[in-house]
Amino acid sequence: MTQTNQTTQTVTAHPIDPARLDAVRRAGEDGWGNAFTPFAATGGGEPLRCCLRFAQAGEQIALISFAPFEQVSPWREVGPVYVHADHCEGYAEPWLPGELRRGPGVLRTYRADGSMNYEHNTLVGDEDLEPVLDRLLAEPDVATVHVRTVLPQCFLYTVTR
């Protein structure tokens, strides 16, 4: 199991790729027919998938449709995500994001071929996700985990070893 010291963490969080988001911003739409329309964040809990933190009141953000998987797949789901309206460098820390590292949440597990591994999908309460993610990624048939919100089950970020 991963120790609490951040230098020994064995799981890595991945936000939405900044290049994918820049392409959406340039196009002015998200690829599913939704206009890229910036607005001021309320600061009421909009989780930003570009930098893996909550938006602060007044920040310019946008709500777009996004699919974590780029390849065609039965598990390719499109759903709503908040992102910064302007270019964001993303999240490049070697540990889980502080503001989005606790549940409640749904942890969806996927095999190396991109197929969902239903056996290991996990519902977590208000707890630190790292020990659960560490356990799931230790399974030989789990390559990736998608962290999602619990009620709407919106995508937050991907975790790998």
Score class of each variant (00 low, 15 high):
residue 2 T to P: 08
residue 5 N to C: 12
residue 6 Q to W: 08
residue 6 Q to S: 13
residue 8 T to R: 14
residue 8 T to N: 15
residue 9 Q to S: 14
residue 9 Q to F: 07
residue 12 T to A: 10
residue 12 T to M: 11
residue 13 A to E: 11
residue 13 A to Q: 12
residue 14 H to L: 14
residue 17 D to F: 07
residue 18 P to H: 08
residue 18 P to V: 07
residue 18 P to G: 05
residue 19 A to W: 05
residue 20 R to W: 08
residue 22 D to K: 09
residue 22 D to L: 08
residue 22 D to N: 11
residue 23 A to K: 13
residue 26 R to T: 12
residue 28 G to H: 01
residue 29 E to P: 03
residue 30 D to S: 13
residue 31 G to Q: 10
residue 36 F to H: 15
residue 37 T to W: 01
residue 38 P to H: 03
residue 39 F to G: 06
residue 41 A to C: 02
residue 44 G to L: 13
residue 48 L to Y: 02
residue 50 C to R: 02
residue 50 C to M: 04
residue 55 A to K: 00
residue 57 A to H: 10
residue 58 G to T: 05
residue 62 A to L: 02
residue 64 I to Q: 00
residue 64 I to L: 03
residue 65 S to N: 15
residue 65 S to Y: 10
residue 66 F to Y: 15
residue 66 F to T: 03
residue 67 A to V: 06
residue 71 Q to M: 09
residue 72 V to T: 08
residue 74 P to H: 06
residue 74 P to M: 07
residue 75 W to D: 08
residue 75 W to I: 00
residue 76 R to V: 01
residue 80 P to A: 14
residue 81 V to Y: 00
residue 81 V to C: 12
residue 83 V to Q: 03
residue 85 A to E: 06
residue 87 H to I: 00
residue 87 H to C: 00
residue 93 E to L: 10
residue 93 E to A: 12
residue 94 P to D: 07
residue 95 W to K: 07
residue 97 P to M: 04
residue 98 G to N: 08
residue 99 E to C: 04
residue 100 L to M: 15
residue 100 L to C: 04
residue 102 R to F: 15
residue 104 P to W: 06
residue 105 G to R: 06
residue 106 V to M: 14
residue 106 V to T: 07
residue 109 T to M: 02
residue 111 R to W: 01
residue 116 M to P: 12
residue 116 M to D: 09
residue 119 E to T: 11
residue 120 H to A: 14
residue 121 N to F: 04
residue 123 L to K: 07
residue 124 V to F: 01
residue 124 V to L: 02
residue 124 V to N: 01
residue 129 L to C: 02
residue 130 E to Q: 15
residue 135 R to V: 10
residue 138 A to G: 12
residue 141 D to P: 06
residue 142 V to R: 00
residue 143 A to L: 02
residue 145 V to S: 11
residue 148 R to D: 00
residue 148 R to F: 00
residue 148 R to G: 00
residue 153 Q to F: 01
residue 154 C to R: 11
residue 155 F to P: 00
residue 159 V to H: 04
residue 159 V to S: 03
residue 160 T to G: 04
residue 161 R to Q: 09
